[in-house]
Amino acid sequence: MKIIKTILLQAMMISYGILAEIGISVAITHLMGGESMTLEWYHPLSFVLCGLLGAIPTYIWRNMESLTKRQFAVRLILHCLVLYAIVMLFGYVFKWYTMPDGFIAVSVGFFIVYAFVWVATYFFYRQEDKAINAAIDKIRDEE
């Protein structure tokens, strides 16, 4: 049950990331006077499917808390590359890009979103640390 929950949560995050990436890039293109983007009927479904398939590499993070820093770094690179391959494969099959510049734009967007998710996660961990440390300060015994 926990695995299904994690996969669904990851799927939603990835689908959201794809939508955020497209939304921001289309908004920037529009503001710079570029062409508007038109979605095909299969595009929204492809985002959902990509999210689901992209959630499977989450398995790489099993026993995450027992990993050494080196193991964590290796799995981080592996997870990033596997997810990148899945996203780019979906991009190719569902024609999210057709030209080399589109390929580069999707790639850059992917790495920005991927890095953002980790930075945001770390930020939330730090905020949680601060709250716990502040609460512990109030009850700590003096030795």
Partner: peptide, 20 residues
């Protein structure tokens, strides 16, 4: 919890507590 000096998380989500 009253014997914890501080806690610190790393990117992997592992939280480490340093005791008094």
């Amino acid at each position: 919890l009253r014997k914890i000096k501080s806690i610190n998380s790393d990117l992997s989500g592992r939280m480490e507590s340093v005791l008094l």
